[in-house]
């Protein structure tokens, strides 16, 4: 498995950190050895629609998974709606972000 995955950001729930059109490079191996930490920017599979990817920030980590939220919380659908994201749904940690 190639460790770095690219994603194009859509929508606005991570503003001002990320805006539509930005790219993120994700390290898929980042959580092999340790659990996510609070504050990590992560790409996860949507627990309610696993073919879809979400980019969010880890707010809390528990045994049931990572509680993720958007930086721009008003329009964000996140763990407040779908609960903690199980470990196997976490793609990896955002390693680099690229803005136009």
């Amino acid at each position: 498995m190639f460790p770095i995955a690219r994603f194009r950001v859509d929508d606005r729930s991570m503003e001002p950190t990320l805006a539509p059109g930005d790219f993120v490079l994700v390290n898929r191996l980042s959580y092999r050895r340790h659990a996510p930490s609070r504050g990590d920017l992560v790409v996860v599979r949507d627990p309610q629609a696993p073919l879809r990817y979400l980019v969010k920030r880890v707010a809390d980590v528990s045994v049931s998974g990572a509680f993720v939220v958007g930086d721009n919380q008003t329009p964000s659908r996140d763990s407040r709606t779908f609960g903690p994201v199980p470990k196997e749904f976490i793609v990896g940690r955002v390693w680099r972000t690229a803005k136009p």
Partner: peptide, 14 residues
């Protein structure tokens, strides 16, 4: 790279 092979979209979806 995206033009050659589009990256999957990570939704920061509302």
């Amino acid at each position: 790279m995206d033009r050659l092979s589009p990256a999957p979209v990570a939704h920061a979806h509302c």
